[in-house]
């Protein structure tokens, strides 16, 4: 951590190598954002060390992964063109009833979300463009807070969530009017940041279900929905 060019270059090397702690790595990333030479040094180390990745054996990615990526990227682009907007597939009645129930639950949480939206808007995060508060039905306490950060949603626990060791939480997005939730990936109890090309539309529901370890094997929630909330855009 020095202004000496050699030291700075080795800082960049350590950062790319991945040996730094979370705090140290964030420090370098923050410095690189304001220091083009450090950013260039990082890119150079990336190019130097990347060939080492050829030593890792390739492994086929899970079959559902492309759908998750498509949902987070290209589909949102395709949907911008109304001529290509997909027709809704024939709904499944049980799914509909379930979703209707959760709509009712999380519609009520909207008021709560609006309060958080106000806090986010007038508080210390002027860049937040949307927010959702996820709560468990039957519990008075909000469980997770989802907030827009640049190009992503940050979802953090507001209370500690106990997850059985043989289960995982999975996060789902259900746009208003849609009949099938789309997986946004697993949700560690400590929360995570999810990169999204486009933020959820107004009144999209965020659902958290309890799934077998590794996530739903079917591409739809298989376990109970533990938490739900409605996305509110801040414009």
């Amino acid at each position: 951590m020095s202004d000496n060019p050699t030291d700075r270059d080795l800082d960049a090397g350590e950062y790319v190598l991945g040996v730094l702690s979370d705090v140290e790595a964030r420090g370098i990333a923050a410095r690189a954002a304001a220091d083009p030479e450090l950013a260039a040094a990082i890119a150079a180390w990336q190019a130097r060390l990347a060939p080492l990745a050829a030593a890792v054996e390739a492994v086929s990615a899970p079959p559902d992964l492309w759908r998750r990526i498509a949902a987070g990227t290209v589909l949102t682009t395709v949907a911008e063109n109304p001529d290509q907007r997909p027709r809704a597939a024939a709904p499944e009645a049980r799914m509909r009833r379930q979703i209707g129930l959760w709509r009712a639950v999380s519609a009520g949480c909207l008021a709560l979300a609006a309060m958080f939206a106000g806090i986010a808007y007038f508080g210390h995060q002027p860049t937040a463009r949307g927010v959702a508060v996820l709560a468990a039905a039957g519990s008075p306490a909000p469980a997770f807070l989802a907030e827009a950060v640049s190009g992503a949603i940050d979802i953090r626990p507001l209370a500690s969530a106990a997850v059985p060791t043989d289960r995982d939480l999975e996060l789902w997005s259900l746009p208003a009017g849609a009949t099938r939730p789309v997986s946004l990936g697993l949700l560690p109890a400590a929360g995570r940041r999810i990169a999204l090309a486009d933020l959820p539309a107004e009144r999209t529901q965020l659902l958290v279900s309890l799934e077998p370890r590794g996530g739903s094997p079917t591409g739809l929630p298989t376990g109970p929905v533990l938490y739900a909330g409605t996305w509110t855009r801040i414009e």
Binding site: W102, P140, P224
Partner: peptide, 29 residues
């Protein structure tokens, strides 16, 4: 919290489609 957040926990579950259901695989969206 708003009152609606206090609704009893629904016991019913999502009904997942049959695994490897090609109809779903080609379905919306």
């Amino acid at each position: 919290p708003s009152a609606a957040c206090l609704l009893p926990h629904p016991r019913s579950r999502y009904s997942p489609p049959r695994p490897r259901n090609r109809g779903f695989a080609r379905g919306f969206p």
